[in-house]
Write a protein that binds this DNA or RNA. Structure first.
Lengths: 210, 210
DNA sequence: GTTGCGATGTATCGGCCCGATACATCGGTG
DNA sequence: CACCGATGTATCGGGCCGATACATCGCAAC
């Protein structure tokens, strides 16, 4: 799942690990607080060995600091990596509907075609509905087996599920009626490769120091 | 964190692994969907080696099935385990305030004294407030750097944080005014072992459905 | 001016936890 | 009696986290 997020960000622009972590944090903020380096670097290494990203020496002309020794490492997505990213975005397995998986997929919906978006939203809704029903069963059946605090916890969780289902329903309706959340361009018309140079009103996905 | 939950359940009654998993699921339903056996059994083993629980052969007189071969294993909490459970419940570290940690602690609030409950609720509130502020910063500062879907994801996450803070605030107010969610007995007076049967009356802290 | 501190930056290690898998028994129903 | 779903115990590979270590840069305080 993290692999997908990394490929997605590197598709926008090459970065080094530290930047990647920050971008990941703002992009997925609500989904995963902040990715650990103990996760990030091994994952980057893994992505290199399978050839989806490459490691390039720091671009000295643009970014002077860290001149010697253990210099910065800039990661860049490969052509094969772009293919894999597209594949991963399009194909939705069961892990696409859990909290982390759904969040990452959703964060890249601007790069996903409408059919896939709908499929994922509906899969997610189904997943949450299942959890909601399970919780309702517990609450109705085991009402006197649980103490008040535990019940309150369940009640609060149930409310959160109900709210999420409503949210998903709204998104699904919007998708069906052709509207994206607030007018983002539909990805069907995108060049499939907008790599480094950002779209007009999407200024610098990331601002490097002047 | 899982250790705490296991000790808590075994304090109510001895169980074998399969039961434990089910009880865990209903008790923590909203927190962690269902604990994996790949987590449960190693954890039980670990708890045995440190001496907080013991493994006893299945009680044949009561539970006849699984008569031979790889029989059921019933786990029971030890005296030291009870002490550790009390310690873990009372002392709140940083991990007490993350999603999993808070959920487990909350699920055993009926066994926690009021001062500790307040401390934990306030710590959790602070934690969520921090996340909320971070998210607000992202949303206000990077409004034009993110696409509509990502923004929608953040907005939804922000709303969830705001809702949780309100929920916590309500719980804190209730605690301060001496009311537990619905009148569960304060744990100071409990016999430390109330096993299976629950509180007689379980009204709603928060009234909702008819 | 140098000292020290906070932000930037790369990397590893132990450990928790998950999903997949394997194996075995028990209580039914066809 | 054959099968099947629920019950039950257990391991393995791998993802991810928190703690930790180490190095550089920019800057402000002394």
């Amino acid at each position: 799942m993290l692999e997908l997020a990394i490929l997605g960000l590197l598709q926008e622009t090459p970065m080094h690990g530290y930047e990647l972590r920050k971008e990941l944090a703002t992009k997925l903020g609500t989904i995963r607080a902040a990715i650990s380096y103990g996760t990030l670097y091994p994952t980057l290494k893994r992505l290199q060995t399978v050839g989806w990203i490459t490691e390039t020496a720091a671009d000295q002309t643009i970014v002077p600091p860290m001149t010697s020794k253990r210099g910065r490492v800039v990661y860049k997505i490969t052509a094969e990596g772009k293919e894999r990213f597209a594949d991963l975005l399009a194909q939705a397995g069961p892990e696409t509907y859990d909290d982390a998986g759904f969040g990452v997929h959703f964060a890249f919906f601007a790069r996903t075609d409408r059919a896939t978006r709908l499929r994922i939203l509906e899969g997610r809704r189904r997943r949450i509905e299942e959890r909601r029903e399970g919780l309702r069963d517990v609450l109705s059946r085991a009402n006197n087996r649980l103490d008040a605090y535990t019940l309150e916890l369940q009640r609060h969780g149930l409310e959160a599920y109900e709210r999420e289902v409503r949210w998903l329903e709204e998104l699904i309706t919007n998708e069906r009626s052709g509207r994206t959340p607030s007018g983002a361009a539909d990805s069907r018309d995108l060049p499939a490769d907008l790599a480094g140079d950002a779209s007009p009103e999407t200024p610098r996905p990331h601002q490097d120091r002047p």
